[in-house]
Nucleic acid binder design. Sequence first.
DNA 1: TAGTGGTCTAGACCACCGT
DNA 2: CGGTGGTCTAGACCACTAT
Lengths: 241, 241
Amino acid sequence: MTQYSAIAADLRRRILDGEFAVGSSLPSEARLCVHYAVSRATVRNALSTLQARYLISARRGRGWYVNATEHTQGFDHMSSFAQWATEHHLSAGGRFVSRDHDRASITELRALHSPADQTVARTLRLRSLDQRWVMLERSTWAPWVASIVDSMPDDIPSTTAGLAESGVDVVFTRHRIEAVAASSEDAQLLGVRRSSPLLMVRRLTTARDGRVVELGEDRYVPGSIVFEVTASGGIARRGAD
Amino acid sequence: MTQYSAIAADLRRRILDGEFAVGSSLPSEARLCVHYAVSRATVRNALSTLQARYLISARRGRGWYVNATEHTQGFDHMSSFAQWATEHHLSAGGRFVSRDHDRASITELRALHSPADQTVARTLRLRSLDQRWVMLERSTWAPWVASIVDSMPDDIPSTTAGLAESGVDVVFTRHRIEAVAASSEDAQLLGVRRSSPLLMVRRLTTARDGRVVELGEDRYVPGSIVFEVTASGGIARRGAD
DNA sequence: TAGTGGTCTAGACCACCGT
DNA sequence: CGGTGGTCTAGACCACTAT
């Protein structure tokens, strides 16, 4: 435990305990330096971590103010389905419904940054949360990871963890969120009515070296998972660029 | 322009120009200090701003690596519908369909942090993007802003801007994203079929002093707007807590 | 072992805010 | 004006990574 993270945790606790109410200001950085007996840089490091989570915000010449009493998990911390579940003390499961190899479509090739005439792996996977099927995951895997995906057991709980074991670190994901009507296949596998609303998340995951790993399309049963985002409004609160 | 933001901008330009490819490493912090003739703290401040945008990430003992060449707009920059539209060079419109005063429900009172037996303002508003109706906005306004909302013209393009003119700065918004089926009313106003899928965003907006301003529920026509999030994966890349 | 990023110190000057 | 946060310096020691 570093000093600044201990200070951040303590300040967070004091906010949750009500010592610093929403809308009120924190002690000045100088006072915090004295109180925690550290340098100003360390105090600012602690405050920055709370600011990054939108718990507090600073006003030049005035002080640090409390935005919220709750720590809300934003997309910052969203990674893989399984990782997310673990962090929330839920058990994530998965089962491959089908795995095939196929020629990539032109759209896919462009998205995968792959040369023409490549064979990709296509998978359909049911995913559960606490033993309840809540999501259907359709993935197209880039040729260079297809064999790794092939070798995974049918009930692997996390493909991201499986890839990591093979030395493929997923570091970057872009999510696009939309709403769609359930297809017949969706409805049957997820146990919902046809054309009932599903939350669809299109993902593009990238490895550390920049290569595209997977094109994913997840369809969630409404109510099973809520995507939550906390954002500070106003204009350009972040310092730079 | 501060030094660190200038350095961040320069590094970003060099990444975009291809001098540092995706997956490759940046010069070490020490080299960057020499190159830009600044102290290490300044270099790290610059790198942090790029890291916050998921453009680069660090590996202890190894160096800084380029994640992506693109700057992707995430929810960090999401504020009000109108502000978002303006930033994307789209024209946002709005029209109040109804405005009423009503007793707050118990759920609403708790969410608004309001004492019992308060009268809230309830509004239903159609919102357009480039002259197309794409969203239906149901809002419950806290008692202390109800009169401000009452005084707004029917076709006000941005209630957030209207509130700001009255001295109410919205600084904090929590979004919860789900999928729902269109009700009869939704279908009629948005021009879609009943029970067709809509993207629903529940919002809680808060003023600078911590008071809750609005409870909102937005329903988007699919395809009109895509919510996009870019996130770095891996395990707890952020320092603390 | 040499080089890297992660953390920390003890100062400094500045722009901005309220009085 | 005094107090606040924003930026910056010139060091230091540590944990981790590669060779």
